[in-house]
Design a protein around this nucleic acid. Structure first.
Lengths: 357, 357
DNA sequence: TTGAAAGCGGTACCAA
DNA sequence: TTGGTACCGCTTTCAA
């Protein structure tokens, strides 16, 4: 108790008038302050503020009142230190200016709250630049990590070594079992191609994502595979960066490299699909969907705007966020659980940007 | 040192083979582990890892190697407890599915990194529901708060009482001096009206934001004031919720309540302007800008899409974010600094959605 | 039911 | 330059 001596010497000359500022002298109230004011021990204060602890009604009430009088707020930092639980979850995310990730973040945040976890946000300018960031993540003793960015194997191992569970959001690591929640890219792509083919389309073009996007490549592969199954080969593929501009540029390139312009542009996400539609209408004078059918992927907000009414695969972002947090928190509670991948089906949205059969 | 005894008894039988897992037995490495391995004191470890501390090159190197061998990462939680600096900044934000706030968040995050601060994200479903959230903010001993949501006076006082600096982003409290960074709503609105009037427009309609938005009301007042100065009275005003749907609904309502349809729709933000344009074109068959000029506010990403090419006031979000963090960190370092409001000018973007003079 | 005391993992002061 | 030690504010045994 010696270490508390300095504090115990605070005299309360005017008990009737004592106010928080007088007692504390500008400090924030601690459980010791509350204890002194309530005339109980500090450990009693801690106990009284816990849900199912043993404390008499009388003491509970005294502590409650003293805490209120001092404006006491428990120090989560100190609590975390002793409990080894920060109630912090790191969310690694990038492209907050895209349309997709803000929705993801919003849902992740909502579900984190359900599990009484706070979000420590690491919004990366690009999907790289992680190494320095990762160090900060580890320093903050987060309970878990949600990775909506690419992670190298060594980066993942650095986290695993600290026994911090990781769940990937809409991505995963090839050849390595990891926790992940994904939207079913393969099925989504196959459904879109099937419906487009049934509508009579035969000349396809693909505006794909960058090569280092695992799910993007999966979607591309599934698209081409289904086309082959339907007897359509040599489908031209161009690359984009998931943004509006590269959707527009992609269409121009598709037309440039093909012998004939395509009747369908399969885009890797909605934002590129929107760029593609605008390029078709405003640069090339191609009516959508009359002259060109365009499909996207994601189902972001603007996809429903009257100017676009995108035909797309809507990702069940809410469910995905929920699954992500469940998966993660299960592993926070029980680190022994094996890696698990949850693949949720997307839903086709039959907008007006493509003729479907 | 008695409290460290348990740890000191860890025997190192095979010094040549000792690996992190053997020494630690699954624990995360602490500075004590590093100290023991390096054969120095714990305080020396702490010192060696600080920037400008006094330590011999030899010791530095030994500590560095021991730390690397054990995969040691300093515990930011423990550090925060003693330094009373969490290096955490709470960002209170809502409407992450809007187009504007994700950009804001992205920039805030970038600039927080510059100041070596992490973002503790509180993404609120609605701008209310803060009370419960606020308690969590206070528990985490954040260095400062950035409020991009409405805060009541009592909520602000609860934060001030803990001596945590707050900066409002694009909002403030009436009749109370607070730190705030805002885009110049008044000037922006006046510029738009002036240019529209110069182009010959005389029949205006306003699709405003909700009444409880301080900056929204400021913008509305400035718009109506400038119109009056130009001799235009009885401008119809309808309300919206800053979203796409209420932009569309707003236009319908403007037409319903007015004797003649307006020639200009002044919208409180870009998203409503976009909804308004789509409603004009697809519901009402009104060509934009031939039959109806539409202006927005914000300068969000989609405002530049070919389908809209919005005439709007672009907010200098990067500069605003930078100013926000500067203002905040200045007050973290020096709590005595008086409240300050920084108002940055927006820039008019002459898109194709309105005829300007 | 209550209180004393031992940490959690760092930082920083002070003496050597 | 180095090590010893006293905290930061809480949770959690363990006795009383």
């Amino acid at each position: 108790m010696a270490r508390r001596k300095a504090r115990a010497t605070v005299t309360l000359r005017k008990p009737a008038e004592r106010v928080a500022s007088e007692i504390l002298g500008g400090r924030r109230a601690t459980s010791y302050d509350v204890a002194r004011l309530a005339g109980v021990s500090q450990s009693a204060v801690s106990r009284c503020l816990q849900p199912g602890a043993s404390a008499s009604v009388k003491m509970r009430e005294r502590v409650r009142r003293a805490a209120a009088e001092l404006g006491y707020t428990p120090n989560a930092i100190a609590r975390s230190l002793i409990t080894r639980r920060s109630n912090l979850i790191a969310v690694l995310i990038s492209n907050l200016t895209s349309l997709y990730y803000p929705e993801v973040l919003s849902e992740l945040s909502a579900h984190a709250t359900v599990h009484d976890e706070r979000i420590l946000l690491f919004a990366l300018p690009h999907e790289s630049d992680i190494d320095e960031t990762l160090d900060k993540v580890l320093q903050y003793q987060v309970d878990g990590v949600i990775a909506a960015v690419r992670l190298s194997l060594s980066q993942l191992e650095a986290i695993n070594r600290r026994r911090i569970p990781v769940v990937f959001f809409n991505r995963y690591l090839r050849d390595h079992p990891v926790n992940a929640v994904c939207c079913d890219q393969v099925d989504g792509a196959r459904v879109l191609v099937t419906r487009l083919h049934a509508a009579g389309h035969r000349r396809f073009g693909v505006i794909a994502g960058p090569k280092d996007s695992v799910v993007g490549e999966e979607r591309l592969r599934a698209t081409l595979e289904k086309l082959q199954e339907l007897g359509i080969r040599d489908t031209p593929v161009v690359r984009g960066g998931y943004d509006y501009e590269s959707g527009a540029a992609g269409l121009h390139e598709l037309i440039r490299i093909g012998k004939k312009p395509p009747h369908v542009a399969v885009c890797a996400n909605d934002l590129m699909a929107i760029g593609c539609i605008d390029a078709a209408r405003f640069d090339l004078g191609l009516a959508v969907p009359e002259k060109l059918s365009v499909v996207g992927f994601d189902g972001v907000g603007p996809s429903t705007w009257s100017s676009y009414r995108l035909t797309t695969i809507r990702q069940p972002i809410q469910r995905m966020a929920e699954a992500t947090l469940t998966l993660l928190m299960d592993r926070v509670e029980n680190p022994k659980l094996p890696p698990e991948k949850r693949v949720l089906a997307g839903q086709i949205v039959e907008g007006g940007s493509a003729k479907l059969g």
